[in-house]
């Protein structure tokens, strides 16, 4: 695992973000290496989601820099460059955000056809392969309203994968799911991470974070309070706030 972790995908330097007088991020410094799986945990309102959303520019930071493979993505020249960058970063949301007016198949093929100019049949072949991979092939012609929460989230994941991203970001992907559907979604995320996909996941699933991550980040009050390997982080947390948080959730 060491050699594939050598290359820095993200380097975040002194990232600040505020929303009308509320400072949400107060100087985040972090690196994520290629193939790494990083879990971001912490209390609500601490800035985890904002941090993640800054990484694909859904939020515009006030200051600092985000280097993606050495390029500062906060100084991209135009909107086209922003779109091209986002194509490399898959994002999965808490509330799935599948497109209700499109069939399952069209949800997946829309952006490869529109933005990657992929021929329709090629995009559909790829979509079918992805649907098979997550066990949704029989839903191919359905509209998302006919899917369960777990199925919607699996659809959202492969919709992102259809763009062949280099990184996957997950923003609390299981928080809106009924308990019995959490596992099927985490399984997909885990399989992907193990196949070498660089993964950053904001989650409240401590068991999952412990099992799958290479590194755990604890964000509170707009700062990374502590980070480390899952063993070190969960067995012997160094920081008082980390200990307090873990005592509440474990």
């Amino acid at each position: 695992m060491t050699d594939k972790h050598s290359f820095e995908i993200f380097k975040v330097i002194d990232l600040h973000k505020s929303f009308t007088n509320v400072d949400v991020l107060k100087g985040i410094n972090a690196t994520v290496k290629e193939g790494e799986t990083v879990s971001v945990i912490g209390p609500s309102g601490g800035g985890k989601s904002t941090f993640l959303r800054c990484l694909n520019l859904l939020e515009k930071p006030n200051s600092g820099s985000i280097l993606y493979k050495g390029t500062d993505i906060l100084n991209l020249p135009n909107k086209k460059a922003v779109s091209s960058y986002r194509q490399k970063i898959g994002m999965v949301f808490q509330h799935f955000n599948v497109f209700p007016h499109l069939t399952v198949l069209d949800n997946i093929t829309l952006s490869p056809i529109l933005e990657k100019k992929m021929p329709k049949n090629e995009a559909e072949d790829k979509a079918k392969e992805l649907l098979n991979r997550v066990g949704l092939y029989d839903k191919i012609a359905e509209y998302p309203t006919r899917l369960s929460g777990g199925q919607k989230q699996r659809l959202a994941i492969i919709r992102a994968l259809a763009m062949e991203p280099e990184v996957m970001l997950y923003d609390e992907p299981t928080s809106a799911l009924d308990p019995e559907m959490v596992k099927e979604v985490l399984q997909v995320i885990q399989d992907l991470a193990l196949s070498g996909m660089t993964t950053i996941i904001v989650t409240h699933e401590m068991g999952f974070a412990k099992l799958v991550s290479d590194r755990v980040m604890f964000i509170d009050g707009g700062l990374i309070v502590e980070e480390g390997s899952p063993e070190q982080f969960f067995e012997s947390p160094q920081n008082e706030r980390t200990r307090e948080f873990l005592s509440k959730v474990l």
Binding site: S83, S84, Y85, Q87, M91, F93, H95, S111
Partner: peptide, 13 residues
């Protein structure tokens, strides 16, 4: 969230 999902897939505005 629909707009965010579209943008995050790399669709233009």
């Amino acid at each position: 969230g629909q707009q965010e999902a579209g943008l995050s897939l790399g669709l233009t505005e």
